[in-house]
């Protein structure tokens, strides 16, 4: 059955973010001939809208006030798009924006949101949303008693459409009004070069490293694989100990990565950690515990003390690169 879908888009450096394009791909298959709307707010929104493959209509405002996200301003604008598109389903990324907009929009529309979903289906017009819960130990499928069905969606849950057309029509949303919150300061994390979400290889260090200094060895593994290919991540236990910055945390409350190769060094593989990396093509563990949970997800493994394995691995990787 045809459904109207509204995607709450986000801009990344003036272009539609990767997750926005993923959501549009998901929306076009869900819509079954219904409309697919996308909202974009902030400088460059109208021009970014043209690249929104899968959308039939774009709702935009270029007001640069929207560049820093404030929930109340965004909600007012989105209310306009909801009114004109009368969606059956609203999809939002599980991002800083989605974590706030999802619940608040659901309340304002008298409906409900399922957070951090990994798949959404159109079951003869009834929306079903499936999401991991209990730290990834379980999956739950939800149905909605109210409409629209709102879901925030985990990154990489849909594949971007390679070809297709952008929105045929564009409607203007109102500019940003007042906000109850004032942003006093922002501080960018210094993560230069390759981002862990984009890297084809992620090398991740855990609490089993025993000390902050050992992360330099994890960085060496990444460097030996190639600075243009490999990025370094960390488990929450390592981040909480202050060994590595929060921007590099992989997992349920960190980032979701789906590289071709995920190398987990001295990481136990707790379900909440795996929530952020279980979509990787190949997972490899280095762990001294034969019973570690990481093995349930791994393709290859080395059982042993990382202090011995890692220097040998760095050497072998360098040799391999030299060939």
């Amino acid at each position: 059955m045809a459904q109207n879908i509204l995607v709450i888009g986000e801009l990344d450096d003036g272009a539609a973010s990767t997750t926005t394009l993923e959501l549009l791909a998901g929306a076009s298959s869900l819509s079954d001939g219904g409309s697919v709307g996308v909202t974009l707010l902030g400088a460059g929104a109208s021009s970014a809208a043209t690249s929104c493959v899968g959308a039939t209509v774009a709702y935009v405002n270029d007001d640069s006030e929207y560049d820093s996200f404030r929930g109340d301003q965004w909600l007012n604008a989105i209310a306009g798009a909801v009114e004109s598109s009368s969606p059956d389903v609203v999809l939002i990324a599980q991002s800083i924006v989605g974590r706030e907009i999802g619940p608040r929009l659901s309340h304002r529309l008298g409906t409900a949101v399922a957070m951090d979903c990994v798949s959404i289906s159109n079951d003869g017009g009834a929306t079903k949303a499936t999401r991991p819960c209990f730290g990834g130990n379980a999956m739950a499928t939800y149905g909605f008693e109210t409409s629209p069905a709102i879901a925030t969606v985990r990154a990489k849950s849909f594949e971007i459409l390679e070809s297709g057309s952008g929105p045929a029509t564009t409607e203007e949303l109102p500019g940003a009004g007042e906000s109850r919150t004032a942003i006093i300061a922002t501080e960018e994390a210094t993560s230069e070069g390759l981002q862990i979400q984009d890297a084809p290889v992620v090398v991740c260090g855990g609490r089993g490293l025993g000390e902050a200094e050992a992360f330099s060895q994890i960085e060496e593994i990444a460097a030996a694989i190639g600075a243009d290919k490999a990025a370094v991540g960390a488990s929450r236990a390592a981040v909480d100990l202050g060994w590595y910055p929060p921007s590099q945390q992989v997992g349920l409350t960190g980032k979701v990565v789906t590289p071709d190769l995920y190398l987990a060094v001295a990481v136990s593989g707790a379900s909440q950690h795996m929530a952020g990396c279980s979509g990787s093509k190949t997972i490899v563990g280095i762990n001294r515990d034969e019973e570690a949970n990481i093995w349930s997800f791994s393709r290859y493994g080395i059982i042993g003390d990382y202090k011995q394995i890692v220097p040998a691995l760095i050497e072998e990787l360098k040799k391999a690169a030299g060939n």
Partner: peptide
């Protein structure tokens, strides 16, 4: 408003 229809491992 939201109903768990299935919970599984």
């Amino acid at each position: 408003r939201l109903k768990v229809e299935r919970l599984y491992i």
